[in-house]
């Protein structure tokens, strides 16, 4: 099958991408301003103490040596340890990433359903009242900053109405976390069979997922609208109508034509949100990957920041590769070229 050939050719570029990500992760961090040793030691430290800390962290070595050390360790699966907690970075990543993945995947699913729906409605009824309504909703969604939307939803749904639990994390303070199997709390709660915990996890996911879902639905709505309007005006749709096809089928034809750019946009959002949901994670005490990254950056915890960049970069690389292959599956013109 040609799709497999295409996929194989596409995956050929993965190692090259990986190397670039490693170099980038190293350089970005080593070009960061500020001296981590100074931060760790505190303002009252003597020069001798400072030098001692620098030696312990390996900061006194030349750049090139630090890089080869870094790559050598990566190959051994050693991502370094946090300057502060001394915990191995790899296990930190594996601890925080599943929570973010859960948040991002659920949010983007909501965003896609809501946004594509709004976009289809607007595009199909272009120029009519449904279009104007859809556009008003989308503009509103997009003009409210996501952190503000989060606070608004907390105020309305938790403080005023009491529908949602307090934004204290993934579970209530009294809830017993399920044993870790996959690392993804919702799935682990389901596996453990403890429905009370599962319900609590779902309830605590409601507002953050809704916040990101609503906010990013605007992006899906806009890209759907932008690609569906020309598709609906295309000769292809006119011919489909001239053949007597129903409006439903005609819309499906137009959507087939428009779905590649929508999907591409979704992929870009997914990649961006892997590290980009930090503010929402922080507001809801989500314990996610972005939250961990922000803390690490503020503390100049170099191994942690490197680990974050590496993981986010690899995630992005994988998302884009999967996206390209998916596009080829959906569009024969790509895979037969």
């Amino acid at each position: 099958m040609r799709v497999f050939g295409y996929a194989r050719r596409r995956m050929f570029f993965l190692p090259l991408g990986l190397l670039s990500v490693i170099v980038l992760a190293f350089l970005l961090v080593n070009a960061l301003p500020g001296n981590p040793a100074g931060v760790i030691a505190g303002p009252a430290a003597s020069p001798a103490e400072l030098a001692g800390i620098e030696r312990r962290l390996g900061l006194d070595k030349p750049l090139w040596e630090r890089f080869t050390d870094y790559v050598g360790a990566l190959v051994r699966g050693d991502f370094g340890s946090s300057y502060y907690t001394d915990r191995p970075i790899l296990s930190e990543i594996l601890r925080f990433a599943p929570a973010t993945l859960e948040l991002v995947v659920l949010s983007l699913t909501i965003a896609a359903v809501l946004g594509v729906g709004l976009g289809v409605l607007g595009a199909y009824y272009k120029g009519r009242s449904a279009d104007r309504t859809s556009r008003l909703v989308v503009t509103t969604f997009q003009s409210i900053p996501d952190f503000f939307l989060a606070l608004l939803l907390i105020y309305l749904c938790f403080y005023l109405a009491g529908w949602a639990p307090a934004p204290v994390g993934r579970l209530g303070l009294m809830d017993e976390p399920p044993p870790t199997v996959t690392g993804a709390l919702l799935i682990d709660a389901l596996i453990s069979g403890d429905m009370r915990t599962f319900r609590s996890a779902v309830a605590h996911s409601l507002l953050p997922v809704l916040t990101l879902g609503i906010y990013y639905s605007a992006y899906f709505a806009r890209s759907t609208y932008a690609s569906l309007v020309p598709a609906l005006e295309s000769k292809q749709v006119e011919f489909a109508r001239a053949c007597g096809l129903s409006e439903r089928t005609v819309l499906a034809y137009a959507f087939r034509q428009a779905r590649t750019p929508i999907l591409t946009y979704g992929g870009i959002l997914l990649a961006a949100l892997l590290g980009g949901a930090a503010i929402i994670e922080t507001i809801f005490s989500w314990g996610g990957f972005g939250e961990w990254a922000i803390d690490s950056i503020l503390q100049l915890d170099i191994p942690a920041v490197q680990g974050f960049i590496l993981a986010a970069g690899v995630g992005t690389l994988l998302v884009f590769t999967a996206l390209d292959i998916l596009v080829a599956v959906l569009d024969p013109r790509v895979r037969y070229d």
Binding site: F239, A242, C243, L245, Y253, D331, P332
Partner: peptide, 21 residues
């Protein structure tokens, strides 16, 4: 009627036919 009683032959087949079906 369209397609059954009245057949339509479009100008450019590549823009009339569905490219992804």
């Amino acid at each position: 009627l369209r397609g059954k009683d009245i057949g339509f032959i479009a100008q450019n087949p590549f823009s009339a036919l569905n490219p992804v079906m």
